[in-house]
Design a protein around this nucleic acid. Structure first.
Lengths: 139, 139
DNA sequence: TTTGTAAATTAAAAACATTCTATTTTACTA
DNA sequence: TAGTAAAATAGAATGTTTTTAATTTACAAA
């Protein structure tokens, strides 16, 4: 598995560092779509010298290289996902409690793509679609 | 028209102030889905004493009272809309250039609601749906 | 295996949008 | 018209993310 990561990093022109491996492996293992801070909290238990800057920088690099996905939320805090299988992110909840679900249903994805995206002449990947559903506000 | 606003504010238990009227009227007039800062820039030309805090506070109040909508984006900057006609917000572009389009097509809205929202047992209004399509990243 | 160097990590500061606090001002009721 | 609760203001504070400058590291080439 480490070999696979080595290959992946090399292909993308990235050096393989302890920090990058730790972050990517954690993201690949979890299904919680963690934030940068959540990732930092988790990783720093094993690697106490890692900094939050590194986590942010690493995530940005991995996103730009197409290795992971950055998920927008209404709470102003991005979440991350290493699952590149085509799927739609459904973001729900409220500012204090963001909930993210994955929609793998190909029909739904296809419908959204053809009915909405293509209507506006957009060239989108299946996994660049985020559906944000805000819960009703009080009063 | 001012009478209508007076009625609206009173109904919602809000005092009608110059600032609130200016902000709401601007939002009702424009179709640009402006950010708090854009609204501040526009309003402050006519009312130079208004502050950015007031714009934020007012927007928050209007959102909580259901008078306007707050639109999340991937750029970490919220945008606002006074159009309460049921429609879906399609958020596109990139961090530096957010583009928002309105989808009024009832069929599309209904499809997203029934196919996606109801599948997850969500009780959503038609205009609480935000579809964020991220453009492909470089490299 | 060692060395050179570009790339990555670090710590800290800065940037940015947004919220909060304490004070002053205002809208509206009586 | 005066009293009062609500709103606006100025400025500080917050929280997330980015940037900067210095140190450390990965890895290619000798």
């Amino acid at each position: 598995m480490e070999k696979d990561l080595k290959k992946l990093f090399t292909e993308k022109g990235l050096k393989m560092t302890i920090q990058r491996v730790a972050i990517l492996e954690y993201l690949m293992k979890t299904k919680t779509h963690p934030s940068a801070d959540m990732i930092y909290e988790h990783i720093s238990k094993k690697y106490p010298t890692i900094t939050l800057s590194t986590v942010y920088n690493t995530l940005e690099t991995l996103v730009n290289k197409g290795i992971i996905k950055k998920i927008p939320t209404f709470a102003g805090i991005s979440r991350y996902d290493a699952d590149l299988e085509p799927h739609v992110h459904l973001v729900m909840g409220d500012d204090k409690n963001v909930k993210i679900k994955d929609i793998y249903d190909k029909e739904i994805i296809q419908q959204i793509r053809t009915e909405v995206a293509n209507k506006f002449n957009l060239d989108v990947d299946d996994n660049n679609i985020y559906l944000i559903i805000e819960e009703k506000r009080q009063q």
